[in-house]
């Protein structure tokens, strides 16, 4: 208990000075929110939004480490993540539109058959 309180106190003292780990903690929080959205949401478009949150969290991590290492490799990887996110969103939304025309719903739990 004593050590736990000491750890918490040192954590609160550590917070105001922004280092690398602050960015990592932010991305961890964003990632968890995205995963929560993917698990709980049943609307296909909200699932896509959760995926975008997860991809953004990954990008923050890549760029933070790229800044920490002083090389631009991480930023290049982040560019490819953005490219793939754009392609994924376009294809996924086309599929969602088709599902809506066919089943009149975008609830992913109700769409469980390949054909009517």
């Amino acid at each position: 208990m004593e050590t736990w309180i000491n750890n918490l106190a040192s954590f609160i003292e550590w917070l105001p000075q922004v280092h690398l780990a602050h960015f990592l903690l932010l991305s961890a929080a964003l990632f968890s929110l995205g995963v929560y959205a993917i698990i709980t949401r049943r609307n296909a478009i909200l699932l896509l939004m959760g995926i975008e949150l997860v991809l953004n969290a990954a990008n923050i991590n890549l760029i933070a480490f790229s800044r920490y290492n002083g090389s631009l490799d991480g930023q290049t990887a982040a560019i490819f993540v953005i490219i793939l996110a754009a392609a994924e969103a376009a294809v996924a939304l086309a599929i969602v539109l088709n599902i809506f025309h066919r089943f009149s719903t975008v609830n992913v739990d109700e769409v469980s058959s390949l054909k009517e």
Binding site: F11, W14, H19, L20, A21, L24, L25, A28, A29, F31, S32, V35, Y36, I39, R67, Y68, G70
Partner: peptide
Amino acid sequence: AVSILAGLLAGVFYSNWKDAQLP
């Protein structure tokens, strides 16, 4: 489940890179 995941991630990040300064 997600809070456990967040706690694990934050714990790993905090304990490994707590003192890493941005150059």
